[in-house]
Simulated scan of single mutants.
Amino acid sequence: GPCNAELKGLNNFVIYTIVLGNCLALRRILARAVRSGSDASVPFAGNIFEIARHAMSQTSFHDAEALNTVAQDLGLMNMERSLDIDMALKHVVTNAGASTQEVQTVWAGLPYAYAAAFFSEAWQNTTYDARNDVFNNNMHTSSIAMAELFKCLKENAGGPRVMFGTFFKVSSFLLLRMKATEKYALSFPLRGMFVYLEKVVQESGAVGRAILEEFVPYPLIHSSLMEIAALKAR
């Protein structure tokens, strides 16, 4: 098949990313449940957080990890851009030494690794369920993991915008060529792969759709979504 032994490590990389994505997705579900409970029993929790946020400068607010962690545990993580970062993951990334030059070099390669992952066996064995808008192996959760990792990086490590931009640029280049190559077009779920890019856009937050559309023609994205909508309607 199109995959070979040299991509074995890349396949494991994809699988571990899916596992991380599953964990992050579960944390989001728990946060929503806690928010629902806190609204009923502690209805002013959100107001307390808002008061604290307005009392701090933007820089101080972004650096206040304890405050952001509490807000996330209360299910308030999407109220501000900084709270869109999974604080537990950010803590792990920080402890991994993301501020050192050596580790920054490794982080800088993440967008290329995730783009190359489209050639992995994991992707080759993936099928897209249009009716439920999911992938059979939970590949959709890997978009959460990738986006959260990118968001954890500070500007001196490339920054989220650079990371997302690099991923969209490289992955769109690869997918468009896969689409034009028969052996890849027949072996990989290309329609689902373009939908996956859309999911990454949804997770990218402030980066927005413009970066993706800079590299992938909008009609191509639109046609994939329309085909999926037609399948859902059946």
Rank of each mutant, 00 (worst) to 15 (best):
G1I: 03
G1C: 02
P2I: 06
P2C: 02
L7Q: 06
N11L: 03
V14N: 00
I15F: 00
I15E: 07
T17I: 01
L20Q: 10
G21E: 04
G21N: 09
C23L: 09
A25K: 08
R28C: 10
A33N: 13
R35P: 06
G37C: 12
S38M: 15
D39Y: 02
S41D: 11
A45N: 06
G46F: 06
I48V: 15
A52E: 15
F61V: 09
F61C: 12
D63V: 10
D73W: 02
E80L: 03
L83G: 00
D84V: 04
D84Y: 00
D84H: 02
I85P: 00
M87R: 11
K90C: 11
V92H: 08
V92F: 02
T94F: 03
A96L: 14
A98M: 09
Q101T: 12
V103R: 14
Y114K: 01
Y114G: 06
A116E: 11
A116Y: 05
A117H: 09
S120Y: 08
E121G: 09
E121Y: 08
N125C: 12
T126S: 15
T126H: 05
T127E: 08
Y128T: 08
Y128H: 14
D129S: 05
N132I: 04
D133H: 14
D133Q: 14
N137C: 09
N138R: 10
N138K: 10
N138H: 11
M139L: 15
A145Y: 07
A145G: 03
A145Q: 06
M146Q: 12
K151I: 01
E155Y: 00
A157S: 13
G159Y: 05
F167D: 03
F167V: 05
S171N: 02
S172D: 02
L174P: 04
L174S: 05
K179E: 08
E182V: 13
K183H: 12
K183W: 05
A185K: 12
L186F: 04
L190T: 02
M193F: 13
F194R: 00
V195A: 06
V195F: 12
V195Q: 09
Y196V: 10
L197V: 01
L197A: 08
L197M: 10
Q202F: 07
E203H: 11
S204Y: 08
A206T: 12
V207E: 14
R209Y: 12
R209S: 15
R209L: 15
L212M: 14
P217T: 09
P219R: 09
L220Y: 04
I221N: 06
S224P: 03
L225A: 10
A229L: 12
A230G: 03
L231W: 10
K232C: 05
R234S: 10
